[in-house]
Design a protein around this nucleic acid. Structure first.
Length: 425
RNA sequence: GUGGCCGUAGCUCAGUCGGUUAGAGCGCCGGGUUGUGGUCCCGGAGGUCGGGGGUUCGACUCCCCUCGGUCACCCCA
């Protein structure tokens, strides 16, 4: 093949129409839902000072191995990184601006992680998300989680499961961590080699292992639920009770720990059962009560989630939800009389608010009609030498069995509008 | 970062034990008498067989390297 000189970098890709408009519609659905729920849009930089992300956890792959880092031309150079996620940026923005609480924001946009691509995983990927900062009211948890549930519903997805757990607070978590570490150490020999390494770095993460060998050990591991402080247990209870009142189905998943280290108390994940790939988590989030403080702000509780746009779309494909919308083109203008009429008619029809397209290069009538057909337009406006001479245009119904009529040029918009309003399949 | 599989037209693929001008479907372009799409028919354009090296009289076919894709691990949305 003729070798292109360049191609999209590994793990990135061009998204062409109509897939691109479908993505945009998905974000629109989310934006609408978040907006109606009192969340305002936060637009934050695509890159931040490296330190912002390093607060996510020193032994986390996302910040240790997967960061796109670079230096700018400052003197001295600033150490920057493309954002691997957005919660840290949100907390940084909160610490910087000190908005009145509760601060409820939503976001969408690309994020970057230097990983090997695979199904549902890209180096540049898109997420939508919400965050509520400044309150640890369990009802805020319910609002956030419930928003996620309703979003999938609005997309028409049916095979999404909500997994939820509590990781405990600053009082209970260390006790559990110690108990878990002790337990895992005791059965260390039964663990996979990988998990033994993980055990040294972060015992909690061992629970995340997908390796068959680790299953028995994980199955019998102590669960956080037994170590929750009274306050944490009450909080979790209130959250699940709230979800019950929403009629939102969920599964308490004692071993759900999630990847980022900053999570406390409520953690949750949305799993798409329609996806038979390894990457079947279409969203996840939780509470991060210490993160703002980590970033130099006032002690501020927070909760939020991020949903993976790419994976959601994959899951939608798998279960046949949120399909492509029909063509945005209502009318196609065919001009075989020099083309000047098309220039004018397209403009006039577009100004009337209609979706209008046309052909170029003075193609034959047959060719232009074919284009009109492919465009999905319900109506074609045809101008040939006869119409041109008479100062008229033919308005043709492209739908099966549709007829056509010739109208004076000034009446084209009205005739088209009328035809579009008429019997539609 | 590690491993498996794959790499032939824009897309999806076929290509016999290595043997002449590398094929199909879809898409694209044109045509099927004088101005009309969708079905049908005819024709056409389009490929240095991912790239490089090697083996051979001869490589799309075999070997090595490399790049890319894909899937899994890891990690995560």
């Amino acid at each position: 093949m003729a070798q292109p000189l360049f191609r999209a970098p590994v793990g990135t890709r061009d998204i062409l129409a109509p897939a691109s408009s479908r993505r945009r519609r998905l974000v629109d659905v989310f934006a609408d839902l978040a907006g109606r729920s009192g969340f305002g849009l936060l637009e934050s930089p695509i890159f931040e000072e490296l330190g912002v992300f390093q607060r996510l956890g020193a032994d986390n792959d996302v910040v240790t191995k997967e960061l796109f880092e670079f230096f700018d031309k400052g003197e001295p150079p600033r150490h920057l990184a493309l954002r691997p996620e957005l919660t840290a940026s949100v907390c940084r923005a909160f610490a910087e601006h000190r908005p009145t609480v509760p601060w409820k924001i939503w976001y969408s946009g690309p994020q970057f992680r230097y990983e090997r691509p695979q199904a549902g995983r890209y180096r540049q990927f898109d997420q939508v998300g919400v965050e509520t900062l400044g309150t640890d009211d369990p009802h805020a948890d319910v609002e956030v989680v419930g928003l996620g549930v309703r979003f999938y519903e609005e997309l028409g997805m049916k095979q999404v499961r909500l997994l939820i757990n509590s990781l405990g607070d600053a009082d209970s978590r260390p006790v559990y961590d110690a108990a878990l570490a002790a337990y895992l150490q005791r059965r260390r020999d039964e663990l996979s080699e990988q998990s033994r390494v993980t055990l040294e770095r972060n015992p909690l993460r061992v629970l995340d292992s997908k390796r068959e060998q680790d299953r028995p050990v994980i199955a019998e591991a102590p669960v956080m639920a037994d170590f929750l402080s009274g306050a944490s247990a009450d909080h979790f209870q209130a959250v699940t009770a709230g979800l019950d009142s929403l009629g939102a189905a969920y599964e308490v998943s004692p071993r759900l720990v999630r990847g980022l280290d900053y999570y406390t108390r409520t953690t949750f994940e949305f799993v798409a059962d329609a996806l038979d790939t390894a990457q079947n988590a279409v969203g996840g989030g939780g509470r991060y009560d210490g993160l703002v403080e980590e970033l130099g702000g006032p002690a501020t509780p927070g909760i939020g989630f991020a949903l993976g746009v790419d994976r959601i779309l994959l899951a939608c494909d798998a279960e046949g939800a949120f399909s492509d919308e029909p063509s945005p083109v209502d009318v196609f203008v065919v001009d075989v009389a020099g083309g000047t009429s098309a220039v004018m008619l397209c403009d006039r029809l577009r100004r009337a608010g209609l979706g209008v397209d046309r052909a170029f290069d003075g193609r034959s009538m047959k060719a232009q009609m074919k284009r009109a057909d492919r465009s999905g337009a319900a109506v074609a406006v045809i101008v040939g030498p006869d119409e041109k001479a008479a100062g008229e245009a033919t308005v043709r119904d492209m739908r099966p069995g549709g007829g056509q009529r010739q109208v004076p040029e000034p009446g084209v918009v009205a005739a088209v509008t009328e035809m579009l309003a008429g019997a539609v399949s």
